[in-house]
């Protein structure tokens, strides 16, 4: 059934166009992390770069936009405004372009050149913020812009918007259960806005209560794990539920870098940095088990990190 999202519905058939391609991403077997297939432990990852804009962020971005349109919160001429480290902005810009919604993004100026160029290619308006203040500085800039010009901006606020975690409750959780034929025993997810972790945790709390939920965080406030948050020392996302994870595994940046290179060169998986961190934690969980099915999420592929020479350096 077509949804009535006037005035934007004229631009795109929502149940046939690009948004209909969000989710249902492949589940990849990770042989290296499964003890090379010699044990009763299997490890898999959701390949989220198969989403239309190339990352897991298509799920919350589309959920947030769809909800805002249904509630009439984005009026003609208004811009969708948010802060981003890149991927959420690219997702907003992709759907915004398709729907005719102008997108304005607060983004630290040290975002990778690939991300900035993609956002510019998609026509997003960028407000580059102080790199020394990181993502939290971009959040504060977006908040101020929204307060100063409420008539101009719909502030999507991915960190506090419940549609973020609900999108994973509605899509990622059911997909994990179906793709593992209900055999998933452990779910490992990186923590940025914490939407993936919270949404999937809520879904399993209702549909498969014996799945252990494990969060992944940088091991220190100053780190190179783009997209992940050291929650204790950052602005805490409003959607963060400390009870969503049964435990949290801290990951060192260098270990994630090693994993990115390892999976590229030994399994042909060309993944991004936060995916590498998720894989490090998934390996740790797998090594603790005698049997089980461990599933993690790879938020994006490696294309947006090619300018980071240190990441790809052969050691």
């Amino acid at each position: 059934m077509k949804q009535d999202l006037t005035p934007y519905v004229k631009r795109i058939a929502l149940d046939e166009g690009m948004p209909s391609l969000v989710g249902n991403t492949p589940l990849l077997p990770l042989v290296t992390l499964s003890n090379n297939g010699t044990s009763n432990v299997q490890v898999f990852a959701k390949a989220e770069w198969f989403n239309p804009s190339g990352s897991v962020k298509d799920r919350p971005a589309w959920g947030i936009i769809q909800n805002a349109l249904h509630e009439g919160r984005i009026l003609p001429g208004m811009h969708l405004l948010d802060s981003t480290s890149g991927n959420m902005g690219i997702a907003y810009a992709t759907f915004g372009s398709a729907l005719g919604i102008p997108i304005t993004l607060a983004l630290p100026s040290n975002a990778s050149p690939e991300r900035i160029k993609i956002l510019q290619a998609l026509g997003a308006e960028l407000v580059l913020t102080d790199p020394l203040e990181g993502s939290d500085g971009a959040i504060q800039v977006a908040q101020q812009m929204a307060e100063d010009h409420p008539e101009k901006y719909y502030y999507a606020n991915q960190y506090d918007n419940p549609e973020n975690w609900r999108s994973h409750y509605k899509s990622t959780g059911p997909e994990l259960l179906e793709q593992t034929a209900g055999k998933i025993t452990h779910f490992v997810a990186g923590m940025g806005t914490t939407g993936t972790l919270t949404g999937v945790s809520c879904y399993f709390a209702e549909h498969k209560t014996d799945v252990e939920i494990i969060g992944v965080q940088p091991d220190s406030p100053f780190n190179g794990l783009e997209g992940l948050k050291h929650i204790a020392t950052s602005l805490q996302p409003g959607i963060y539920d400390p009870s969503a994870a049964d435990r949290i595994i801290p990951v060192k940046t260098e270990d994630a870098y090693d994993m990115v290179r390892c999976l590229a060169r030994e399994e042909g998986y060309f993944i991004g940095i936060s995916s590498g961190a998720a894989a490090v934690a998934a390996r740790q969980v797998a090594n603790e088990l005698e049997e089980g099915v461990v599933v993690t999420v790879f938020p994006d592929a490696g294309f947006k990190y090619l300018s980071d020479d240190e990441l790809w350096k052969t050691t």
Binding site: S85, N110, P131, S135, Y159, G224, K229, S234, P237
Partner: peptide, 10 residues
């Protein structure tokens, strides 16, 4: 000189 952090969050 500036020490630039990586970008956290989504």
């Amino acid at each position: 000189l500036l020490i630039i952090p990586s970008i956290a969050g989504g």
